[in-house]
Design a protein around this nucleic acid. Structure first.
Lengths: 315, 315
DNA sequence: CGGAGTTGAGTTACCGGTAACGTAGGACTA
DNA sequence: TAGTCCTACGTTACCGGTAACTCAACTCCG
């Protein structure tokens, strides 16, 4: 018991005893069993479960980096969960992670299975839903309005005089953020009297090469598309390379728009039309709010990090 | 006790009892406390600690993805540790993670502090050191010989007739893999009678933009460099864009070589001179070997995944 | 039909911390 | 000097699973 007090620097022991205890700790190479502490006190571990759809999508690795940096500086650890965009996978992962008594959870996306929601509410631990802003979150939400960002892009492209629109993304269910962007884009086009002639959802990761061959597919099925909005910048860059290879001029022959402002944009000779989003900030803010709740303080239930449309030279 | 047996499907109970127990589980929304199980049996959790230098470096996210996919399919979870290339950070993280009784550890790099090594040996759990192959690992090693890959690139470039060589990477200590590549490259150049006139280690992540401005810095300090070897493909692509912006012709005016074959390479109109490495495979193999040891089987102590030099069109 | 084996279920103790409480002995006060 | 308080340290019990054991009841067989 005295040793326990010394190690926790709880006070109630003499300097002489402290020295004696620390000497024994050194001699035995003693490492405390944190599992026992958690068990005894019905406490939480220092783990924070973080679910992201996949690591192949660069935007999520940036979010994850923001989260982990912040967590580490407050002596917490990230437990990774790749859900592969499957709500069932997420539910399984939530159940497993909860049985290990995490201090909190950060989930990407606002859609969960009913049982997942039930588990989360029952666990009664701090929770942040990130990425797609949820105005009535289970606990907290950090992100941006993806529908609006798609809508703004649609409106912007209409203002540039385009009439026949395309979209290329990767396959995903009805509940995810990229679909919200597509829906916003489609709505803006409809409202503005344009036509979304082709939309393509590839069964792939949203990277450079899917952007390349997705553009090829889209243009071969509808050569009259005037502008294409991509799921993210990397896909858009893939499209730019396809166009260069085919001598299709940008923006004279076709307009290209990305989303997310990814690092590749910084070295291009032209400015890619895109939507700037601070991915790292989403992660940091999510972790900050979570840590506030974990330490018993209050935190904003809904934090909108916003977005900024970058006009660029590719439309 | 009977309930415990039912939930573990251990046998030794009647069907009638099983139904009764499961009904209570349902009624109470009972979730087992895995912490108690670990505590009681002095067992391990299902966590596997995975340390990587940083998430801003794309090669490591691919390795991490390979690891996590494999771990998840065997009901294990990744606990992330970003060490920021600091051995002291790694030591702290190892100490913290070990106190949570992980089933195993995967560490990026072969260099650790003496105390870290002591902790790892004391913990007596399966351990894989990845990335830079370690012929005498603490437990197991999965990766490739980075020195050799640098050496081969140096020799290849010499065979192309180059005489004045440059290198651009990001800052890192003497112990890491990129430094091994640089050392191998330098050795090959020395052996072949060439000259490594400039080497640049930026204090940044090895991404597109650092490749861009690193090339600018290198060429302004030594305009006579004939070929530059970059820490990875993304930096090399940054260099290609810098050269395009400056009307420097590749490979006529300067040669560019990358490393790692990253996704961007798949959409370029030319073939980038690089070294192909299967990052995902490293992660998968590391996880596979770890899982073998965790389940009590034996696994290869040293697994070399190798590399392949891609001649390309940029030299 | 008696003894041995089997089956389903219950009992006890333990893992390693720590909250809550107990207590010896010294200091301080009326 | 007796009563009170404080400090430093010790003792007990508990968290929730499960290994190891006990035991009643039932089965099976010579």
């Amino acid at each position: 018991m005295t040793a326990s007090r010394v190690l926790r620097e709880e006070g109630g022991y003499s300097e002489k005893t402290r020295v004696k205890v620390m000497a024994e700790v050194e001699r035995l190479g003693y490492l405390p069993n944190r599992i026992a502490t958690v068990f005894a006190g019905d406490k939480s571990t220092t783990f924070v479960g973080v679910s992201i759809p996949d690591l192949g999508n660069e935007v999520f690795t940036h979010v994850l980096e923001g989260i982990d940096r912040k967590l580490v500086s407050f002596n917490h650890q990230t437990v990774l969960g790749m859900t592969q965009h499957e709500l069932g996978e997420e539910e399984n992962w939530i159940e497993t992670v909860l049985s290990w008594k995490p201090a909190g959870l950060i989930l990407t996306g606002r859609a969960h299975t009913p049982r997942a929601v039930q588990l989360l509410q029952g666990a009664n631990i701090p929770l942040v839903e990130i990425w797609d802003l949820n105005s009535s979150p289970i606990d907290m939400s950090v992100g941006l309005n993806h529908f609006d960002s798609g809508y703004d892009m649609g409106r912007f492209l209409l203002s540039k005089g385009y009439a026949r629109f395309g979209y290329v993304g990767t396959s995903h269910d009805a509940a995810n953020a990229a679909t919200s962007r597509l829906n916003g884009y489609a709505k803006a086009i409809e409202d503005g009297g344009g036509k979304l002639t082709r939309q393509l959802c590839l069964n792939d990761i949203p990277g450079f090469y899917p952007g390349f061959y997705g553009t090829e597919q889209l243009l071969s099925s509808d050569p009259n598309v005037e502008v294409i909005f991509f799921q993210n910048d990397n896909m858009a860059i893939g499209a730019v390379h396809f166009c260069q290879a085919q001598n299709i001029r940008i923006p004279q022959d076709i307009g290209i728009a990305g989303w997310g402002e990814l690092p590749i944009a910084s070295v291009l000779p032209y400015r890619l039309t895109t939507v700037q989003v601070n991915h790292l900030r989403i992660g940091q803010l999510a972790a900050e709010n979570l840590l506030l709740k974990i330490s018993g303080d209050t935190a904003k239930a809904v934090s909108d990090v916003g977005f900024r449309l970058v006009p660029g030279d590719t439309v």
